[in-house]
Design a protein around this nucleic acid. Structure first.
Lengths: 211, 211
DNA sequence: GTTTGATTTAACCAACTGGTCAAAGTTAAG
DNA sequence: CTTAACTTTGACCAGTTGGTTAAATCAAAC
């Protein structure tokens, strides 16, 4: 049964570890707290994952891959660039709405241990090159303005991710610290970010909200 | 002399603490390491700042205020909006270029302890309301497109801050992990972000790079 | 029912961490 | 010089933390 019933303890540990690590980060998390959260003994934790580092790496890899999902398919579809970019932004913000603590967690940990990040990226098939090339092709075709495609990529990511990563500050400064209002704002942002970007880069076009 | 020569030990501690805290964060920093960095005894650390929390709060306040500098003056000058926004972006990115680790540090800590952030904002005279109003006036005057002014503010901040906060990831994905190339990219961004934003929001205008 | 291997537990440990304390050093004033 | 206040230090402590171990439990195979 060692293969069939893997759900039980190991799964429980992974789930608990994810909860605690995302909330507290590697430095702030305590093995005891993870054990409590999983309702098991601390020694059992070390039985399944030799040490904290190993457990953390398992969680981080899982979470990190989770955030580079099946986006490729919609980026490289046959639809016009405008639509593809819109779909990307919408899907990405949707992903973050479902996992609102991922951005802060990932930013924290990639700054703490960039080397592990490097090994992850290499191990995975992440290939930004082809995305950049695709963007450059669109510029050749003059559907979008000429600019450094890396600027565009980082703009798209920043506009999507930043409001989640900086949530406590933004919510407090601009939304009277109302959680509800900020959530509604984030949902509306799926549209407004799309418009903001397209307005800037589309040649000879100005989008209007709700258009 | 207790007032005149404040530079000596207390200053040394603050400087060391800032270095260590920004690098490791509250959880990752060790009092012993701060003491070493300041080349003093650990007990002396507790003599000047009763405990870690107090020392951390001193540093965080200092750093946090540092990042809301004299920007007000250029936001509310008499110049046209286009210029004021450009100046803001440029000055802000310049500020971050001089303190490239502040964004990651601040994002980390505001997510760890949002309550302390709240007390800081209230204690200080930070008033986002008037900035939002100013933006709304520009929309009334139809110099810029109509949109949620909070969206615009968060876009501006995100476009400026994100490349610093996510640096390890962005540098690795888009710049072959070349520190030098990424630095040059960040400098160019003072211009490209400005253009990107203005392109999006200015009514009836498309900026061209170098224009 | 006994053997065998995987799971689970309680008790324990060494290292680390924030923090304390009493004593010693330093400085300026009387 | 003496006093008194402020600085600085080394030694120490109690609590926490990641991690270990030996024994107990359990489930299936024989």
């Amino acid at each position: 049964m060692s293969e069939i019933n893997k759900d039980s303890t190991e799964e429980k540990i992974l789930h608990a570890a994810q909860t605690v690590f995302i909330q507290k980060g590697m430095d702030g998390a305590r093995m005891q707290e993870i054990a409590n959260e999983a309702k098991i003994n601390k020694a059992l934790l070390h039985y399944y994952f030799r040490n904290k580092q190993k457990l953390f790496e398992a969680i981080f890899s899982k979470v990190f891959n989770q955030i580079f999902p099946d986006i490729r398919s919609l980026i490289f579809s046959e639809k016009p660039f405008e639509e593809r970019l819109g779909a990307f932004v919408e899907r990405y913000i949707d992903l973050l709405l479902k996992n609102p603590f991922l951005p802060a967690f990932i930013l924290k940990e990639i700054n703490r241990d960039p080397d592990f990040l490097a090994s992850l990226i290499k191990k995975q098939g992440i290939n930004p090159e082809e995305i950049l090339q695709m963007i450059e092709q669109e510029m050749e075709a003059e559907t979008i303005c000429r600019m450094d495609p890396r600027d565009l990529m980082i703009n798209i990511l920043g506009l999507s991710i930043f409001p989640f990563a900086a949530r406590p500050l933004m919510q407090m400064m601009f939304f009277n610290n109302s959680k509800k209002e900020y959530n509604e704002f984030l949902i509306k942002r799926k549209e407004s970010v799309k418009i903001f970007i397209l307005n800037s880069i589309l040649v000879n076009k100005k989008q209007m909200p709700g258009g």
